[in-house]
Design a protein around this nucleic acid. Structure first.
Length: 486
RNA sequence: GCGCCUCUAGCUCAACGGCAGAGCAACGGACUCUUAAUCCGCAGGUUCUGGGUUCGAAUCCCAGGGGGCGCACCA
């Protein structure tokens, strides 16, 4: 794409060299609130320095009005030949230029709060245009690739990223207030584990060994619980080598936390309080709309078992005791491509995902997954063949995955062995035996509840975004090919 | 990976087989209270790329590239 290189500001440089530092002493928002009562046509003696980008400009002969925007909002600059230094040059500023302006706070006769510019300096030139001054940039590719331009041009983009920052910060405080300790665990893993996903592989030269970018921090966080951190959490960037979609980015952020002495029902309470609390904090209500559809995030959320939900939505009464042949038939008639190695647990999960999950709007905790598909969760206390695991569906999507953690080292070893067998027979996402993790469990992991929450999805939910890319500053894209005219 | 859609001026979009256009931005000018200022003027193109059909292609066809959406996979 070609760009406009500004033809030297009509031969006269607006300023020779931007300053190295400056001290703006007012923001647009602060001025607006401080001078709310200033009447039209009134002037103050208060001299301020504001800084930001020129967004709009209206030339009126010997007067120039410009709209300056800083991170707090916008304010008008009011320049006039009679009182503004370098007035001619002021009128030649481009939309998008950064400037600092000093002058008195006034309200114009037509009622616009303004800084009456005495002195000003150009801080940076915008050689490229920010697009249509009214419609901004809407080309999706340009928006994500040139996020710096998108963020200036589109209020919605800014708003989503700001909300992301605030949600993460609020979550951190919220957890710390409850005694959780934030930790950092390795991103390089000698073997991928803690989730079913294909990893990215890299290589360490000095150790001459392959390392995997983590697909989940889970196993390290539980090692920390073994080590005595009774309540830990990590806001972890994780990496999964899978397809891109409006809801999937290869790197995404997961909040994982582990709480000793808790079980999965405690995790249900916790996620309800987290999501409802964040909604209350940032939207002022737990009654939200997502994609035009109503959603009530207030606790408590519905709790139902996977088999109950299948019966409700698919009309099939199936569970782990259903004869394998019948399960296979139900799965096939639901459109699942059944593979030979699948046991009843896998079939049940597939039936659920195909027939039921998409029609759930939520919020609902889908409880009690088959043990066969949950290698890290503890056996259900009363339902043989199931584990104490739940996923919460909110706005039709999986928001979190949690369980009463498996704490028995022998059972964990057996589960890993099953996984290793699945991997050997071609399941690329199956886990491998993690000897060190089993060893950690042999030192004793107390009963523990754990949960992983998709942070990007939480932000999407509260910002009413339908694309994960909207809540990630720099989403993964195919690398751009640069040519001479880009 | 497969299917469908899409790509025209810096930006947002028209033209849909018959002279490539508009608004905004840019550039020159007028204007002492504008608010997407207004007005006058001027300039701006490998219509994503390559090939084909046609008297004639931005438009139809084929191949490639970028992007979007859906499916698959997943959170």
């Amino acid at each position: 794409m070609a760009f406009r290189r500004r033809p030297d500001v009509r031969g006269v440089p607006v300023s020779l060299e931007p300053p190295y530092r400056l001290a703006p002493d007012a923001t647009a928002a602060a001025l607006a609130s401080r001078h709310r009562d200033l009447g039209a046509g009134e002037e103050t003696n208060e001299t301020v320095t504001v800084a930001g980008r020129i967004m709009l400009r209206r030339e009126m002969g010997k007067l120039v009005f410009a709209t300056l925007r800083d991170s707090s909002g916008g304010i008008q600059l009011f320049a006039g030949a009679k009182w503004t230094a370098d007035f001619e040059a002021f009128g030649r500023l481009s939309l998008g230029d950064w400037i600092a302006a000093t002058g008195e706070v006034v309200r114009t006769r037509t009622g616009e709060l303004s800084v009456k510019v005495r002195e000003w300096v150009q801080l940076a030139e915008a050689r490229r245009s920010f697009g249509d001054k009214f419609r901004g940039i809407s080309d999706v590719d340009t928006r994500y690739r040139q996020r710096y331009a998108d963020l200036w041009a589109n209020e919605e983009s800014r708003r989503a990223l700001l909300l992301r920052s605030r949600i993460i910060s609020w979550t951190r405080r919220w957890l710390e207030d409850q005694g959780f300790v934030e930790v950092e665990t390795p991103i390089f893993h000698p073997m991928p584990g803690g989730a079913a996903a294909r990893p990215f592989v890299t290589h360490h030269n000095a150790l001459d060994t392959d390392l995997y970018l983590r697909i989940a921090p889970e196993l390290y966080l539980k090692r920390l619980v073994v080590g005595g951190f009774e309540r830990v959490f990590e806001i972890a960037r994780v990496f999964r080598n899978e397809g891109l979609s409006p809801r999937h980015n290869p790197e995404f952020t997961m909040l994982e936390l582990y709480q000793a002495y808790a079980d999965y029902t405690d995790m249900m309470d916790l996620v309800e309080r987290l999501v409802a609390g964040a909604a209350e904090e940032f939207l002022g209500t737990t009654e939200v709309t997502y994609g035009g559809r109503e959603l009530s995030l207030g606790a408590p959320w519905r709790r139902a078992t996977m088999t109950e939900l299948i019966e409700e939505h698919a009309g099939s009464k199936v569970d782990l005791n259903t004869p394998a042949e019948e399960l296979r038939q139900v799965a096939q008639s639901a459109g699942v491509r059944v593979e030979p190695g699948w046991g009843p647990g896998k079939l049940l999960l597939e039936i659920f995902e195909k027939t039921t999950e998409a029609s759930l709007w939520g919020p609902v905790h889908v409880m009690d997954y088959p043990k066969e598909v949950s290698p890290l969760a503890r056996d259900h206390r009363s339902r043989p063949g199931y584990v104490e695991r739940f996923e919460s569906i909110v706005a039709g999507r999986e928001l979190c995955n949690a369980f009463s953690e498996l704490i028995d080292p022998d059972e964990q070893r057996a589960r890993f062995e099953d996984q290793a067998r699945a991997k050997a027979s071609g399941d690329e996402e199956a886990m491998a035996m993690d000897e060190d993790y089993v060893r950690a469990l042999e030192y004793g992991l107390p009963p523990t509840g754990g949960i992983g929450v998709g942070v990007d999805r939480l932000v999407m939910l509260l910002s009413d975004s339908d694309a994960i890319r909207d809540v990630i500053a720099f989403p993964t894209l195919r690398p751009e090919i640069f040519t001479s005219d880009t």
